[in-house]
């Protein structure tokens, strides 16, 4: 029995396309189906693991605190953190702190990003300007922006301005460096193609340089929102009576770790959500980047 079956299979394979087409509904179709199912199963497993791991860790934390494997006064169990969060929300302090931090971060981010993109593009395009300012900016970027805070406090007092300016500083440098690099590393062949088809001066900028530089500008936007959150939190630690950074620092000083954890978790959630928003905007603004290799 095995003899004729083997010959038949060899015959089908030998006919090339016709053979494959004939098998596609049967054996080959089944094989493809298995492949697809395996891919789907893997994606589901990845997703399940990415959700289950943090949930399991929180559960473990709860258990460890309940059983006094760790000191519950320092490692407040998640159930108590949730209670504290509920209290802070109903008292209105958490929404208000969140509002202060978001306002400072977003205002500073918008100003810093706009200025950084404009200056970075200008430095990329104007050689004397680049020669004059680029080394200086690179040196300034190397100074941690939070180290500027005392100076800013001396100059501007303890109002909102110095807090927003620390975010402006970090965002500005990240965007300046990314926009400058985007222009400097621009594919010269695309610039030439643009010129060859009549794009000169402002048209070349608007229709070739800017769209081509956007991916790297978005990289800068994504990096700097996270850095901005770090900087505003640190600023609020030392120079503020409100905001999420103040909440964390003040709770620690009053030894209310449950409230401190609420602040930390809120900061983490803000970071994740803002990064997600920027990624979403990037996907909408640059559909061509996400059509690659599909």
């Amino acid at each position: 029995m095995s003899g004729p079956a083997g010959t038949l299979a060899a015959g089908a394979a030998g006919t090339g396309e016709a053979g494959v087409a004939g098998v596609a509904g049967g054996e080959l179709g089944a094989a493809l189906g298995r492949l697809r199912r395996r891919q789907r199963r893997r994606r589901r497993t990845d997703l399940a693991l990415s959700i289950a791991t943090p949930v399991a860790l929180v559960g473990l934390w709860q258990l460890a605190a309940d059983q006094h494997w760790v000191d519950p006064r320092i490692f407040t169990p998640p159930s108590q953190i949730a209670v504290a969060a509920g209290q802070l929300i109903s008292a209105g302090t958490l929404p208000s702190d969140l509002g202060y931090t978001l306002a400072r971060l977003l205002v500073g981010y918008a100003i810093g990003a706009a200025a950084g993109v404009v200056v970075g593009l200008l430095l990329g395009l104007v050689r004397p300007l680049r020669a004059a300012l680029s080394p200086l900016f690179t040196a300034l970027y190397a100074v941690p922006q939070i180290a500027l805070l005392p100076l800013l406090l001396v100059i501007f007092g303890i109002g909102e301005t110095p807090k927003v300016l620390t975010v402006v500083a970090v965002t500005f440098f990240v965007l300046e460096i990314n926009a400058l690099a985007a222009v400097r590393n621009f594919d010269p062949r695309l610039l030439e193609a643009g010129r060859a088809y009549g794009a000169n001066g402002r048209k070349l900028f608007r229709h070739v340089l800017l769209p081509g530089a956007l991916p790297q500008i978005f990289t800068g936007l994504r990096v700097s929102i996270a850095l901005g959150l770090v900087v505003i939190t640190a600023t609020e630690f030392v120079a503020s009576n409100n905001g999420l950074g103040f909440l964390v620092w003040n709770s620690w000083q009053l030894f209310q770790p449950d409230q401190m954890y609420v602040g930390l978790v809120t900061i983490a959630v803000v970071g994740v959500l803002l990064t997600a928003v920027i990624t979403l905007v990037e996907r909408l603004a640059l559909p061509w980047l996400h059509h690659r290799h599909r």
């Binding site: 048209k203 229709h207 769209p211």
Partner: peptide, 25 residues
């Protein structure tokens, strides 16, 4: 008009807009 060896198409424009680029300019 130019045709380049490496195509030099604009990756951010779709096929139609790439063809129409010179006309748009």
């Amino acid at each position: 008009a130019f045709v380049f060896q490496d195509y030099s198409l604009f990756p951010w424009l779709n096929v139609l807009d790439n063809v129409a680029f010179g006309l748009r300019m």
